[in-house]
Nucleic acid binder design. Structure first.
Length: 301
DNA sequence: AACCCTTTGAAGAGA
DNA sequence: TCTCTTCAAAGGGTT
């Protein structure tokens, strides 16, 4: 315990030395908005922040309390879904946080500090065209000529199915269960970070010649933290539109619908609950204290 | 074959 | 209200 804590602190300092002039870390500031608080204790900015701080007001956020209310039948408004090439993204508070030390050793050429993209866009420059397929024309819109299913709809197997169903060999209960199991799964809409990962994964793979997703995701997580507020705002906005579109396409859907579809290995789960954390890349269970609490979080307004 | 690992964020469950 | 859990993607690794 002590040894691991010391190691973690050492590792942290090696990877994240305090900025010059420090020793004095900025004091955590209360966020303007209530921030969601993930399990690992790193408060995140509310994506809705932008709506309340944008100099050019954007449409009001969807009231999720209304999501079970039947909506009038209409074609979802997809205007603005093809590209987000103009307009102000508003102001997000600048976040400075200290991510946990990398569990996967990063090669020098892929060190997050060396390869983090500096914000290159000039102020007011248009954002690059967004290419996420779920936000492209006709994606999953019922009756749309393109008739391309929304990528959030997948068969339970994840494959394109379907074998002809032999009713004669099944009991009624079995057939009902099977029917239920074969019902296409509507996936959760992607959040801002997931959209960012989807866009940047190929680039990281090319840069770092890595294939293992766990390592790639660590790099992407650090790059995400290094993004400017404007860059992050772009993805928060896209994620908001994703959720909005998802709610329009599947008004009765709830994230609960997919709970339990991934079965976890019970022994592992038990271990997690008793050790307070998930198994890391080395197959060990990190202490919660390994999170650099004194340095977390720092929200600079 | 199915789950794990790893990341952040959204949302559900339960205290 | 707060904390914890689950699941979104991805693909090599593990069971």
């Amino acid at each position: 315990m002590y040894k691991e804590t010391v190691y973690s602190a050492f590792n942290l300092l090696m990877h994240y030395p305090p900025a010059s002039g420090a020793g004095q870390h900025p004091q955590p500031q209360p966020p303007l908005h209530k921030a969601s608080q993930p399990a690992h204790g790193v408060p995140q900015l509310s994506p809705l922040y932008e709506h309340f701080n944008s100099p050019h007001p954007t449409p009001a956020p969807v009231d999720i309390s209304q999501k079970q209310v039947p909506r009038p039948l209409q074609t979802p408004d997809l205007s603005g879904f093809y590209s987000l090439t103009s307009g102000s993204m508003g102001q997000l508070p600048h976040t400075v946080s200290w991510p946990s030390p990398p569990l996967y050793p990063l090669s020098p050429s892929c060190g997050y500090r060396q390869h983090f993209p500096a914000p290159t866009a000039a102020p007011g420059a248009p954002y690059p065209r967004f290419t996420h397929p779920s936000l492209m024309l006709g994606s999953g819109v019922p009756g749309h000529p393109a008739a391309i299913p929304h990528p959030t709809i997948v068969p339970p197997s994840g494959k394109q199915e379907l074998q002809p169903y032999d009713r004669n060999l099944k009991t009624q209960a079995e057939s009902k269960a099977e029917k239920e199991a074969k019902k296409p799964t509507i996936k959760k809409p992607l959040n801002a970070f997931m959209l960012y990962m989807k866009e940047m994964r190929a680039k990281v793979i090319a840069e770092c010649t890595l294939k293992e997703s766990a390592a790639i995701n660590q790099i992407l997580g650090r790059r995400w933290h290094a993004l400017s507020r404007e860059e992050q705002a772009k993805y928060y906005e896209l994620a908001r539109k994703e959720r909005q579109l998802h709610m329009q396409l599947y008004p009765g859907w709830s994230a609960r619908d997919n709970y339990g579809k991934k079965k976890r290995r019970s022994r592992e789960k038990h271990q997690e609950s008793t050790t307070g954390g998930k198994r890391n890349a080395f197959g060990t269970y990190p202490e919660k204290a390994a999170t650099p609490a004194p340095f977390l979080p720092m929200t600079v307004l």
